[in-house]
Design a protein around this nucleic acid. Sequence first.
DNA 1: TATTGTTATACTCTATAACTATA
DNA 2: TATAGTTATAGAGTATAACAATA
Lengths: 143, 143
Amino acid sequence: MNDAPHYDDSLTIALLRAREAVTAQFREHVTAAGLTLPQWRVIRALAGGVEMDTTTLADRTVILPPSLTRILRHLGKNDLIEQVPARDRRQRVIRLTATGQSLFDEVWQVSQTRYAAIEAAFGEQEMVVLVESLNRLRRSLKG
Amino acid sequence: MNDAPHYDDSLTIALLRAREAVTAQFREHVTAAGLTLPQWRVIRALAGGVEMDTTTLADRTVILPPSLTRILRHLGKNDLIEQVPARDRRQRVIRLTATGQSLFDEVWQVSQTRYAAIEAAFGEQEMVVLVESLNRLRRSLKG
DNA sequence: TATTGTTATACTCTATAACTATA
DNA sequence: TATAGTTATAGAGTATAACAATA
């Protein structure tokens, strides 16, 4: 035998499985809107008139720069995002188009009901505690 | 404005970021051993003489069957896993070779120090609570 | 007839390195 | 020289369908 913690107790596996279970709640209606989940994260990060450079956007959406480049090309082709002139001409500053904001509003409405269902099943207070714990874990590893 | 929860408070984003931060602790030494993280999950699931069919293995490692087929082909080519004759001849039952177990032992030694470091930074008790909470979340969404 | 697993297909994401353009 | 972003490449994830072999 070895002294590995029982596989189910592994933090990495627990994170993977939890993420799988949670994203499953959103995949269907996001896909139905013609978006992948990473594409949806980008749109969500820009919702409400936010303008953002791609480095910040990559960090906020947890998408690596090469993926983000492709995603932005795709979203731009579908007229969901547009580029804003930036002072620093190395930067690419992005915002939603009116079409993009409309799509956000539509998908977000369904997402809210899904969030509510997760909170109902898991517990509202437990959810707050869990998100805080996850963010604390991340900070303790990065700092 | 919209009534989206603040982006940082989102469960999906918190899960993604936490997973990113945790896997970053393991990626370097697993990669140095010539393995990807999914390949490592497979080897870890089989460590200690475990024999497992691919359906169970796919579930335990959170890898979809088509991906697992590819990964097993790769690991087999590198002589890290081998097939075991099974009663039900539809099943493909897998175990580690001696080479595979050696590689596990080597990588696992480093992984243990990484786990210990995470526990030290985040708190041993908090870690137990977090893993329990993640597993409870998953069960509440699946059941 | 149902189940196990593989193959096929298409597209996307993940990750790293090398590169271009601007500062 | 440093930074922002893109391109290139390989492995892996996502999803569905079709298929062979076995039960």
